[in-house]
Design a protein around this nucleic acid. Structure first.
Lengths: 129, 129
DNA sequence: CATAGTGTCATAATAAACTAAGACACTAAG
DNA sequence: CTTAGTGTCTTAGTTTATTATGACACTATG
């Protein structure tokens, strides 16, 4: 985990979990790291991880079974994809376009930066297609 | 001012100032609202505005004249444009592209959302071209 | 010189995020 | 039953951003 300092840690942990679900690293219905386990591995207080997990539990992305741990929901991938896509399209993209407007950048600039990024980064594999 | 709660207020004030400079609302070399004045108008503590102004002063975007107030630097527009463009291209865009990757969105999706945004929003006028 | 408007600084108080430490209840496995 | 690994909760302390006040120095204006 690389914490940015820009956002709250519990939110960044939430993103970390969502990424692992979307990438298929953590399978649907499968167990995810326990609160204490994750807290130790990313050097953070268990209470902070608990807060992140609670957030995702409310959104039905993960479920808890007392005494056992947390598990990815059966439809966790779809739930996560829907949620993040919605946040991205209605929240982040408009802000990006607004900044582009302010800086006088057009779709061509955006595209060239994207292509440059594509050249320099491998697309991650997905467990199932 | 619409504060997001996501970022710190003093950063949002900084963005607000940069926007007014880039849009030409506040001319190069011209006076900008005094600390107390801006603090009252956006209902924020003067110390918070001071912090924002200090940040922009360090970046040579604005200058202070004791007893008179703050003024946009002579090359304020260029300085601001360079700074924000750099932050956008090296900081924000890579994060956006990474999220797109995660959500399996391509350049076509990006373009269509951009065009939709363009249809719904007027590009702001600039004082000088 | 007096005044009003400016930037600057110092101190204290508040709120939110995070940390620290420990206690309790639940579950599976020996 | 005992144990180890879980989630949950409480209380207290720390850090950072922000607010609240007030004071001081500077500048233009009358």
């Amino acid at each position: 985990m690389n914490f940015t300092g820009a956002n709250a840690i519990y939110q960044q942990i939430g993103n970390y979990v969502c990424e692992n679900i979307l990438r298929g690293t953590w399978a649907e219905g499968g167990k995810i790291p326990s609160i204490r386990e994750l807290a130790v591995s990313i050097e953070v207080n268990p209470n902070t991880v608990l807060r992140s997990y609670n957030l995702l539990k409310e959104k039905d992305i993960i479920q808890d079974r007392r005494g056992l741990g947390y598990f990815v929901a059966g439809d966790g991938v779809e739930k996560t994809r829907r949620l993040l896509t919605d946040e991205f399209v209605t929240g982040e993209l408009p802000r990006v376009f607004r900044t582009m407007d302010l800086l006088r950048l057009g779709i061509e600039d955006l595209k060239s930066h994207y292509l440059k990024y594509r050249r320099e980064h491998q697309r991650t594999e997905r467990s199932e297609s």
